[in-house]
Every structure is written in structure tokens, then in C-alpha cells.
Design a protein around this nucleic acid. Structure first.
Lengths: 207, 207
DNA sequence: GTAATTTCGTACCGTTTCGTACATTTTTAT
DNA sequence: ATAAAAATGTACGAAACGGTACGAAATTAC
């Protein structure tokens, strides 16, 4: 009885998924407060009332955009981090995959919706909560990956290395917004990955 | 001939310096776009036209606030980084001093004006430029301090360590906004400082 | 005293903001 | 056909927005 009998009234024509993609694009380019509902209406092609019906008010639209962005990260970048192999390579590939999300092309970057735009709107409780969830998720997955790469390390060492791994990613979002090029940050990510693995004693030379 | 003869018209009564302090407070709590001129007028006690006369329009007020915040950092935190002694201690003390600026008390944090709020408004060219200046300044001073602490290190090693040092600070601004406590981040700073100095071969144990 | 000069806030302007009431369109049910 | 139901955009409203013209207030110059 999945769709055996069609619904009763006028069939929906709105593609909420592609609309949400446009919403994410806009919010991560200009942040939460600087985007108006008219901007969102223009970008999605939906009328303002349609936006309300599909996503609720502006705040809940932004939180939904953060979730959609998180889904994209989980699908397109996290697998690179969790892939088997040397920690240094996994970290380096993860940063590269994240930067591919952050940048539209090699120069101009719409940036990271979560780490670049949410902090400035964290006085909104829902946004702060979702931001915190993002940070804790990244910390958690970093810890997990480092744990498997260095099982003999102390939990203290693992936690420190994980924090450095997360902090590197967070900083990339600000650096991208400041005008840094993608290749510049990809290099920085590779070198940071090497340093993190070195600090855990996973390579011969100190750096 | 400093103030030998008083100026001609009605004497100015506005304290632009304390007004700018209130402007910084407001912008770093809510970001650029979410703050209205009425908010600024209420916070400073100045009328909206007085704000214009003193600081120009909203955008130039925000840039002026970034500069004022940068001055505060240069006075209250940078000396701790440039102080002689072990690199690990200098870094740790610098992070602690920065976090003392970031936090009003141990729990709630108005955050960092530059790294937490500017990225979301970097589509404004003046803001992006000032943000970039902030990142490059931090990189530069980190490089300088690490250079003196590890003169035998290669420029490649120094640059990498400096980037990790800057990235740690940048990430603290997002973590503070996400609700992390000050003491939590002070600890994280101390451990990151140790890791950075370890990666340069400046301590015995790897971490 | 009177004019010139500078500082400052009241009051206003046009635009944009978020949010919604309501009519219109498109479908199914009978 | 006609009614019920669901989806959608036009059009509206009240409030907030950034910005400024202008007059009142306070001082010096003469």
C-alpha cells in the first residue's frame, strides 16, 4: 500500500530537495542573518509562503540547511577519513574532500555552512546546539579513526591528536572565507596530517 | 600649540572610545548582519546620526570594531606569545590570554569578533580583507616566535608548526561560540602547545 | 550682544523585512 | 457535473531597516 491510491487534492510540484540545495548555497555564501526570505525565494524559485510550508520559518530553514550540509559531509568526506591505511593519508584525503565541498572552484569559496557561518549566529540557541553537535561529531570521528591507527596510544594522546585534527578543519573554513586558495589549504592539510601522525609516533622523522 | 586655543563651536561630549567598546561587544555577540543601528544606538547611548558622524556607516563601524579588537589582542595577548622562555609555555600562555579575551566569564562567551563573526560576512570585501589581514598577522607572529624557539628547524617545518598554532586559535573561536567552557579550551590550548613543540623536536617524549 | 561655528538629537523618508490571509488552480471522490 | 481536498502564488500588513535633512543647543570670535 505504498502509493496504491493517489492523494486527494492538487499534486505537489515543488522539489524540496533541490530547493534545499539552493538554500544551503545561499546561507553558506552570506550567513544566516544577511539572507532574506526574498533572497531565498528568488534562489529557490519558490514563493515565500511555499518556503514556509516546506521548511517553516527562516531559523528552521537554516537549521535544516545545516543538517543537509552535514549529510553531504557524511557522504562525501567522512568515508575518506575512515578508509583503511595510514592515518596520515586518511587525514590528508579527508581534508582534501572537505575542501572540495568548501570550494566551488579553486579560487572562490562559498565556504562551510557550519563552521564559517554558524558561529556568528550562535546567539540563537538552535544554531548553537547544531554547531555544538557538528564540533562534537567531528571530534568523535577523529578520535575513532586515530584510535584504530594508534591503538597503543593513551586516551590522552588520542584526544589531543583528535582535537588538533578537528581544529585544523575548523580553521580551514575561516581561511577559505578569508580568501585562501583551495590548493594552498590542501597543502596545509597534508602537512598537518603528517604532523598529527608524527606527534603520535607513527612516522620516523619528527616532521 | 597642542590645545592652546580651544575649538570654535559647541564642545564635543561624546566618548568615542567607550562607544567603540560597546560596538565591539555587540558585534562580537551577534555578528555583523544581525546587529541593527538601533541596537548600536541603544548600546552606546549615542543617537544614530552621532554614530554616523563618529564612525561612518554600519560597514565601516564593523571594520573599525575589528581594528579595535585587534588592538586589544596585540596589547593583552601577543606579549605572552613573544615572551622569552620555552615555546610550549609561550604558546600555552598566549592561548590562555586569548581565551580571557574571548570569554566574559568561565562559561558564557561573546567570542572572537574576527574569527567567529567575520567569516560569515566575508562576502563584504572590506570584511574579507580585514579577516585576511588577521589570519596573516597571526601566521606571521607564530612563525616569528617559532623561528626563535627552533632556529635549526627548516622553514618548511616552521611554517607547518605556525599554521597549526594559528589554526588552533581560530578553532577556539568557533568552539567558544559552540558553548565550550573556557577551562576546557585552556586545557586544549596547553596540550596543543605541547604537541606543537613536540613536533618540532623541542621535548623528549613524543607527546 | 550678535554672528559664525560646531555638536547633537528629533523627526522623517523610502525600502526592506518577516509573516499571513485569501483567492486560484489542480486534482480525487461521488 | 459538482463537491471536497490539497497545493500554490498574489497581495497585503505591520514593523524594522539604513540613512539623512534639519533645527536646537552650546560654544568662540568679534
Amino acid at each position: 500500500m505504498a502509493n496504491s491510491q493517489r492523494k486527494r487534492g492538487r499534486p505537489a510540484t515543488i522539489d524540496t530537495q533541490s530547493a534545499m540545495q539552493s538554500v544551503v548555497e545561499l546561507f553558506r555564501a552570506k550567513g544566516y542573518a544577511a539572507v532574506s526570505l526574498d533572497d531565498l525565494s528568488d534562489a529557490t524559485g519558490l514563493s515565500r509562503p511555499s518556503l514556509y510550508r516546506s521548511f517553516g520559518n527562516k531559523l528552521s530553514m537554516y537549521v535544516a540547511a545545516m543538517n543537509a550540509f552535514g549529510d553531504q559531509v557524511r557522504e562525501e568526506a567522512v568515508p575518506a577519513l575512515l578508509a583503511p591505511g595510514r592515518l596520515e593519508d586518511a587525514l590528508s584525503n579527508f581534508y582534501q574532500a572537505m575542501l572540495t565541498i568548501y570550494y566551488r572552484d579553486d579560487e572562490v569559496s562559498p565556504g562551510c555552512l557550519v563552521y564559517a557561518t554558524a558561529p556568528s549566529s550562535a546567539h540563537e540557541e538552535e544554531i548553537q546546539d547544531r554547531l555544538r553537535f557538528g564540533v562534537e561529531s567531528t571530534d568523535s570521528i577523529m578520535r575513532q579513526r586515530i584510535q584504530t591507527a594508534a591503538p597503543e596510544a593513551t586516551s590522552h594522546q588520542i584526544e589531543t591528536a583528535a582535537h588538533i585534527g578537528t581544529n585544523t578543519l575548523i580553521a580551514f573554513s575561516a581561511r577559505a572565507k578569508s580568501g585562501a586558495s583551495k590548493s594552498e589549504l590542501v597543502d596545509m592539510g597534508a602537512r598537518s596530517a603528517k604532523a598529527i601522525s608524527a606527534v603520535l609516533g607513527l612516522s620516523e622523522d619528527p616532521l
